[in-house]
Structure formats: structure tokens, C-alpha cells
Simulated assay, not measured.
Amino acid sequence: MVHQSAQYQIELLLADELPQEHVAQCQGGLWVSEREWIDFVSYWLGMPLFIKRAYRDEAMIQILIERVEAFYEEMLRRMAVVAAP
């Protein structure tokens, strides 16, 4: 996700932590890639590069798995209703 704001980059650099709005995205990437870590990177022209390493959070990944499975089951249920003669 690209944020079109130098202010956002400044906030990242000052906070020095993975932004909450990207935690699920990063953990989902770790889940599907089966990797142990991922680097979140943000850059704005003329400003320092922001890099924050995130490691697997198995509890959060389990929540993601459960939510994806629930979504899939609901999708199948709705498809069956729509496709019913």
C-alpha cells in the first residue's frame, strides 16, 4: 500500500514500528510464504528509508486462518443459494 504523504513517512520514522494498518498484511504474507520474517519498507523521495522487520506471530496467523476459512465457507454457502434451481 502506498501512502502519498511525506507526513506519513515522518510518522513512520519517528514511531520506528510497523504500522498497525499493515500488521495483518505482513502476517498474512508470512503465513502464505511460510517464512519466518518479512521486511516492511517505506520510502518517500528525499527522506530516509524506513525498514522494520516483522516476525511470525502464530496466534495472529491462526486468527487469519480461521477468518479465511469462515469467509470461504460463507462464500460456498452463498454460491449454493444463488446456484440453486
Results as ranks from 00 to 15, higher is better:
60 M>Y: 03
36 E>G: 09
61 I>A: 00
68 V>R: 09
65 I>C: 02
48 P>C: 07
48 P>G: 05
54 A>C: 12
58 E>H: 09
45 L>Q: 15
58 E>F: 07
40 F>H: 11
57 D>H: 08
44 W>E: 13
67 R>C: 04
54 A>F: 04
53 R>L: 12
38 I>G: 02
47 M>T: 11
42 S>F: 13
51 I>N: 07
39 D>E: 14
32 V>E: 13
49 L>F: 01
59 A>Q: 11
37 W>C: 10
51 I>K: 15
70 A>S: 14
44 W>I: 09
56 R>K: 13
35 R>M: 15
60 M>Q: 09
69 E>K: 15
65 I>A: 01
54 A>S: 13
53 R>Q: 15
64 L>K: 09
32 V>K: 12
44 W>V: 15
33 S>V: 02
58 E>P: 02
52 K>M: 12
42 S>P: 11
55 Y>G: 06
40 F>G: 02
47 M>Q: 14
50 F>Q: 10
45 L>E: 15
42 S>D: 14
37 W>R: 09
54 A>L: 09
67 R>G: 01
54 A>T: 03
55 Y>T: 04
54 A>D: 05
36 E>M: 10
31 W>F: 07
51 I>Y: 00
68 V>S: 06
47 M>F: 07
47 M>W: 04
48 P>T: 11
44 W>N: 14
60 M>T: 05
69 E>N: 09
56 R>M: 03
58 E>S: 13
39 D>K: 13
